[in-house]
Simulated assay, not measured.
Amino acid sequence: MTNTQSTFTLNNGVELPVIGFGVYQTPPDETAEAVLSAFETGYRHIDTAAAYGNEKGVGAALQRSGLDRSDVFLETKVWTVDYGYDETLHAFEKGSAKLGVEQIDLLILHQAYPQNFEKTIASYKALEKLLADGHVRAIGVSNFLSVRLERLLNETDIVPAVNQIEVHPYTQQRELQEFNREHGILTQAWSPIGGLRTYNGGETPLTDSEINAIAQAHGKSPAQVMLRWHIQEGRQVIPKSVNPTRIAENFDVFDFELTAEEISRIDALEQGMTMIPDELDFDAFGIQVPEA
């Protein structure tokens, strides 16, 4: 029977849609229309970030959509320039104002920051405070290696609900995924069809002969096959597009199922190496997060 599961349950009981809609690198002036298209398709989870500069566009789409606030799951991320306890509390205020909401469903730290991990810990403790006060429904992290997660778990009280990391057939981070699983942390896959590699001039799984053969066998696109692979392996996925046809295509993955043999063939495509090294000086990116 085809798996039609539509949500994952986080470690604090909050439900998160299986497929989210990402707005990474979506220009601010195009964000509202892209998100409205996603809402029309059926997406109910939107993933943005302070560093993307388009939280206001997500908020505008939510307001224009006519959807009840309770029907939409909003996720955003605190950028490194706002790390620190008080700074992160204020980052929530900026983000919620831009989104036009009083409560954020999932608030996560955008990166581990090894050069100043004390500030990273302080930021996470601020997330714990926001959770305790009901300002957010769940908290988590992004791009945290297991060594960073181990320290976080040792120095804080609440296990992250998610760790959002790069996962696609060419970059699978299996050991990190297993660490997440062992600690009840849901793996969210960003760049789930390998799109970031295209931006950086690399090989993309979209043209991989193995994936295309599987897609042909099911009458589906390579992107749909990869998204189905993620879901069947228990990962939440966050594809992105500004093209309404692609937006709809990426959501249409519940009417077929990959066989165990097909999943093994995709698993075998691992090439290693994530596109975001852990040791980068993220503040050197020069990203600032303005007031609302």
Rank of each mutant, 00 (worst) to 15 (best):
A223L: 04
D267E: 13
T171K: 12
G140E: 03
T2V: 14
H110T: 02
E178P: 15
R148H: 15
Q224P: 14
V162P: 01
L131Q: 11
D105K: 07
G59C: 08
I19K: 09
I193F: 11
K129L: 13
G202H: 10
L227I: 09
V167E: 06
H110K: 04
S191T: 09
Q177V: 13
K129T: 15
G234K: 03
L186K: 05
A49K: 11
F251Q: 05
V81N: 12
E87D: 12
T7G: 10
V72F: 00
W229R: 02
R235W: 11
V167M: 11
A49T: 07
T41V: 13
H110Y: 06
I158A: 04
T259W: 01
I108P: 00
L109C: 06
V237H: 06
G84C: 08
N3V: 12
A122C: 10
R265W: 06
D157L: 15
E33G: 13
Q271D: 07
K56W: 09
I276F: 15
L153R: 03
L16M: 15
P169Q: 08
D157C: 14
L145Q: 12
A248Y: 07
E118D: 15
V81T: 14
M226W: 07
P114D: 03
K129Y: 10
E279H: 13
V159T: 14
H230G: 02
G57D: 04
R235Q: 12
S65A: 09
E128G: 03
T41F: 09
E261L: 10
A112G: 12
Q232T: 01
L130P: 01
N12V: 03
F179H: 01
L16C: 11
L67Q: 14
E75F: 11
K220D: 05
F92S: 02
A132K: 14
S142Q: 04
Q224R: 01
V78A: 10
T156R: 09
G84F: 05
K125Y: 06
G194Y: 01
H168D: 12
I214Q: 00
S191F: 01
I185E: 00
S37E: 11
Q111M: 13
T156S: 10
T198L: 15
I158S: 02
D252A: 15
G195P: 03
Q236T: 10
H135M: 11
E249Q: 10
L227D: 05
N250W: 03
G100S: 07
L227T: 02
L186R: 08
A161Q: 08
N163Y: 02
I139Q: 04
F144T: 03
G184V: 02
G42H: 06
M226C: 07
